[in-house]
Simulated scan of single mutants.
Amino acid sequence: MLRFVTALLAVVLVTAGCTSDESGQAADLPGAAGLLDTAAQTAAEITSTHFVVDVNGEVPGMAVENIDGDLTTEGNGVAAKGIAVITAFGSAAEANFVLADDVLYLDTGGGTYREIPAAQASMVYDFSAVLDPERGIAKLIGNLAEATTVAEEDVNGTATYKITGTATKDDIAGLVPGASSDVDVTLWVSKDEGNQPVKAEAVFPGGGGEGGTVTVTLSQVNEPVTVEPPQ
C-alpha cells in the first residue's frame, strides 16, 4: 500500500508541474503580456533589418510571393533593396528592387531598372509600413489579443518564445493591406533581454475553404544598410 501511495503522489506532483493557467498559459513559461510589451517597445526602435516575407496560398491584397531584402528608416524616408517574386495576372516573376528617395525601381531581367510610379509602388509592397510603429510590426505586437506563450523554439539559431494570439484586420492592415477579417497570429520573440521580434505568421481564412499565410522574418536588426538609386 505504501508503494502505491508513493507512486500515486509522484504522478500527482509530475502532473501539477505541467499545468496551465485558465488562459492556456503554460506554468513554466513567461506570461505573454509582459513579453509583448517589451517586444513592442523593441520593435518600435528598430531602424534597419534584413527581412523575408513569404506568402503561401491565397492572401487578399498581396501581389508578392516572396521578398528577401534589407530595409532601413535611417536618413531620408524609407529605403530598401533586395529580390522579390511578384505575382500578376496569374503568373509570377522574380525582380530585383531598389526603393530610394521615395522611388521604387524594378529589374525583371537584363540588368535594367525601370522606375515605378509612386501610385503603383505600394501595390508591389508597402515597405514603409514594416518598421512604422503606427502601422507595422510594433503595432501588431502591441495589440495582439488573447495572447498566450505556448512554447520555447529555435528560429534560425535564435532561442525564442512562441506566442499565439489574434490580430484585428486594422492592426495587420499595414503589413497586409487587403486583410478583411481578424486573423490568427503566431509570434516568435527572442528570449534575450528586449524580446526582439524574430518571426511572425498570420493565417488568413479563405472564402471557399482556401486560405493563406503571410510570414515575416527579421534578422541582422539595426545593422548598417546602405541603399543607393540604381545607375
Rank of each mutant, 00 (worst) to 15 (best):
N222G: 09
S190D: 11
D28G: 06
E223Y: 02
K162E: 14
Q231T: 11
L131A: 11
K191H: 00
Y113D: 05
V59A: 10
L218A: 07
V214D: 07
M62D: 03
V221C: 04
D184P: 02
A121Q: 10
A10Q: 07
K191N: 02
G31Q: 13
T168Q: 11
T226Q: 14
I172S: 02
N195R: 06
R114V: 14
T19H: 04
A119Q: 13
P177W: 07
A32V: 04
T148H: 04
I67M: 08
G211I: 06
I116Q: 11
V14P: 00
A79C: 01
T215E: 15
K169C: 01
V176H: 07
E223V: 05
S91G: 04
G61I: 10
E201R: 13
V103T: 15
T38P: 00
P60D: 14
L140I: 03
V55E: 10
N156Q: 11
L144N: 08
V203M: 04
N76S: 13
E210Y: 04
A202G: 06
P230A: 14
G110C: 08
D182F: 06
V59G: 12
A95S: 14
I83R: 12
Q120R: 10
Q196Y: 00
G178F: 01
P230R: 13
G208K: 11
Y105I: 00
A151H: 01
G209Y: 06
A27V: 08
Y113C: 03
P117Q: 06
V5L: 15
L9Y: 02
L9P: 00
E22M: 07
T47S: 13
G57W: 13
R3S: 12
A147F: 10
P230F: 13
D171H: 02
R114M: 14
D132N: 15
K81D: 07
G111E: 07
G208S: 12
L104M: 05
E45P: 02
A121S: 15
D182I: 05
G209R: 08
N76W: 04
V85M: 06
E58I: 14
V185G: 04
T160P: 08
A202Y: 01
